[in-house]
Nucleic acid binder design. Structure first.
Length: 202
DNA sequence: TTCCAGGCAATAC
DNA sequence: GTATTGCATGGA
């Protein structure tokens, strides 16, 4: 068994199944249920949450998602029609609300014309969606085995000597994907466990 | 009070 | 390609 797999098993034993991505109308986290999302609305909610959580605490994102939901804006058509001021007001708790409102609109415009699951490069062409957000959408909204790299990943794996610290995002992503089975369930759980572990680091 | 969280685009070199 | 900076709220 390779090192990355061993680390995964240790993290799973320590923290348990995480149940990402949380969905506000499905009781939040859903440990051991890898079937979600099952609807277009759920996929949309995940993508919106992925944009809102950029450099922001999930607790603040949750407030924003609830505000959007209460305004019937967790729906692509409605969100696209909605004027920017109302969207800004809803997502204010998530921070960066001016630029994130534009990011949400940009993604939603793309999303409403989508007929098949998006590709990574299509997502990266949207202003407001970078590598981590694109990979999160692919992995959690579309069940594609695209490993998500974030600040915690770099920090934790540098600390234990797997990374030097100067590797690029794509390089780290390749390291994980080349040393793990291409299984979206494993990728989902692993990334969530890394975040959980990262939260309790010094 | 200060610090920072499930990043990104724009800009400069 | 890599480094720096502005963006913003709420909780610790």
């Amino acid at each position: 068994m390779n090192r990355l797999t061993k680390i995964y098993k240790r993290l799973l034993k320590k923290h348990g199944h995480q149940g990402w991505w949380p969905l506000i109308n499905k009781g939040g986290y859903h440990p051991r249920d890898y079937n979600l999302p099952v609807s277009d609305n759920d996929r949309f909610e995940i993508a919106i949450g992925a944009i809102l959580t950029q450099n922001t605490n999930w607790n603040n994102v949750k407030k924003a998602l609830i505000n959007l939901n209460n305004n019937s804006l967790l729906n692509a058509e409605q969100l696209l029609e909605c004027d920017e001021e109302r969207v800004k007001k809803c997502i204010k708790p998530a921070g960066y609300y001016n630029q994130k409102t534009k990011y949400l609109k940009n993604f939603t415009r793309f999303y409403t014309q989508l007929k098949n699951p998006p590709t990574r490069s299509e997502l990266l062409n949207i202003k407001g969606i970078g590598k981590e957000t694109a990979d999160s959408i692919l992995l959690y909204a579309y069940k594609q085995p695209s490993f998500v790299i974030d600040a915690y990943t770099k920090r934790i794996f540098k600390k234990i000597g797997v990374l030097k610290g100067d590797e690029s995002y794509e390089k780290i992503k390749e390291l994980f994907e080349n040393n793990l089975p291409k299984d979206y369930k494993l990728y989902q759980e692993y990334h969530a466990l890394i975040v959980e572990e990262g939260k309790i680091q010094d």
